[in-house]
């Protein structure tokens, strides 16, 4: 319970400990703590930035999707239009072709008819001459009656 040199010894020890703590312990620990504080702050800021960027990206993605849908819609409607156009064109072509074929057939038939008529006319003339010659029982000069016959043929 006596106050003695221990007092001074303890003071010196205390001062030395405080000095050591001040020089070698406090600064590195505080530096680490400050650095971690900064790191965490940076991390939080980065996270916030990331969230904002993600939001932006989501918005952009939605826009792009919307645009793509619009384009797809356009393309589809265009294709539909073009399809019906093609069908219409094809129909028109078919109709035209049919008409053409029909006309050609008509022309051929007419030609055929004319041809047959011509032939028939010739044959009828021959028959008429033959018949007349038989009726007259004489030789009729074909050449002499040529004009007559032609006239007859044209009347048929």
């Amino acid at each position: 319970m006596n106050i003695n040199l221990t007092l001074i010894g303890q003071s010196i020890t205390f001062v030395l400990f405080v000095w050591f703590c001040m020089k070698f312990i406090w600064p590195p620990i505080m530096a680490a703590l400050d650095e971690r504080r900064k790191k965490i702050a940076d991390g939080l800021a980065a996270a916030e930035r990331g969230t904002r960027e993600q939001e932006l990206a989501q918005k952009r993605a939605a826009e792009v999707l919307h645009e793509a849908k619009q384009q797809a819609q356009d393309i589809i409607s265009q294709a539909q239009k073009r399809g019906s156009e093609i069908v219409d064109e094809a129909k028109q072509q078919a109709r035209d072709e049919g008409q053409r074929l029909l006309t050609a057939a008509h022309a051929e038939i007419e030609q055929e008819v004319n041809h047959a008529r011509e032939e028939l006319r010739g044959q009828v003339a021959n028959l008429a001459i033959a018949g007349a010659s038989k009726v007259l029982r004489r030789e009729v000069d074909a050449a002499a009656n040529e004009d007559l016959l032609k006239d007859l043929v044209s009347q048929l």
Partner: peptide
Amino acid sequence: FMAIHVDTMFWSTVLGLAFLYVFRKVA
């Protein structure tokens, strides 16, 4: 006054050094 408490000095120094050692190691 011309005396020193060896036990007080010893234990306080040991404990102080233990504190400094552990904290220095971490620091």
